[in-house]
Design a protein around this nucleic acid. Structure first.
Lengths: 189, 189
DNA sequence: GCTGCTATGTTAGTGCCGTTCACATAACTA
DNA sequence: TAGTTATGTGAACGGCACTAACATAGCAGC
């Protein structure tokens, strides 16, 4: 993708975001290089700075799109367990993107899509509590936050080797189901 | 620490590990630089390669010491909730080190200290299940793994801003207590 | 105590990185 | 059609991880 006819690219901003996702998918967050993104888009290494203030700014835009994709994935899932499976599966299928989304940034901004994703989880928790599928030790909000933490930890640990040692492995959905039922006694409907 | 009388440092390996921890504490994982570590130890930038094969190898040694510290911290805690609080507090007090320990490495090795830490958690879960403090939906092993995931997710999310949005904040111990009781109905003894 | 081996340090260099600056080109607007 | 603004380039900077050739010193066995 290094050839270009016109002097101006036309849609460089999106091309950079897409290229960044590509690199994250291929090589992971730690290997990400802004120069490499520019190379793939067929522009000079200085060009990205016309669209992003720096490397981190591009990664934030990539992360935002990640949150949107995640929100859509969660929306498609049904039930609390299905939603948990979708979360872990997202991390499993887009590990580089997932790490980029949740990398430790000192003063990370809130993401609208991230909020939407949480809202989806909240509704699932509410429904599960009302139907008695899970115990209601605490408010839906607090329970949803706690479950989010569980799913997130599960996803993060799943992206590394360690978890296998305790006999897990398996598909993301199985992981989520097993874990949620161990904590909440919930069963997939 | 840039002065030295003898040509040979004497204890460079440990000095590098300590310096690396210092940098992680000051600037975080993403800012870590091998050259900076060498500078602090008062040696040339090539010297570290006499003790570690590369930057990643040094970070792994640092991580191993981190696992040992974590294992000790968990050992000191009493009760399941106290242990959870200790886990989140460790991440809270050593964020750079924590990120380094759990960074996504393709083929991460198992850590003996990490296994020990899990063993401590497992015993706490066993005791809590036997005393009826938490429900026994699943085996102690599976439950312990699930709680580990929860604590880990909590710690990771706590290191970023996002969690505050849902009204958390507060001290690590409070976070762990609130979360575990929301999921398991467990109360601090 | 000298001699050689090996461990541990240095200096200088490579290539990649993120970032900036001065300048070129093209698209839009008056 | 002319001027302004948006978007690209090329060349440079310092910092990074890492390597190779060489220097020093600690430690054997003689």
């Amino acid at each position: 993708m290094a050839e270009r006819k016109t002097y101006h690219h036309g849609a460089l901003r999106q091309a950079l975001i897409d290229g960044a996702k590509e690199i994250l998918a291929e090589s992971g967050h730690e290997q990400f290089s802004l120069n490499e993104v520019a190379r793939r888009a067929g522009v000079s290494t200085a060009a990205p700075y016309r669209h992003f203030t720096n490397r981190d700014d591009l990664l934030s835009a990539v992360a935002e799109e990640g949150y949107q994709t995640l929100a859509v994935d969660l929306e498609k899932a049904t039930g609390l367990v299905g939603l948990g499976g979708a979360y872990v599966r997202f991390a499993h299928e887009h590990p580089g993107l997932f790490v980029t989304m949740f990398r430790s940034r000192p003063g990370g901004e809130a993401s609208a899509a991230g909020e939407a994703a949480f809202g989806t989880l909240l509704r699932a928790v509410l429904a599960a509590q009302e139907s008695g599928a899970i115990p209601a030790y605490a408010s839906p909000e607090l329970t949803a936050r706690s479950i989010w933490a569980t799913l997130h930890g599960l996803a993060v640990l799943h992206l590394q080797r360690p978890h296998e040692r305790y006999g897990l492995g398996g598909e993301p959905e199985e992981l989520a189901t097993t874990t949620l039922s161990a904590l909440l006694g919930v069963k997939p409907e």
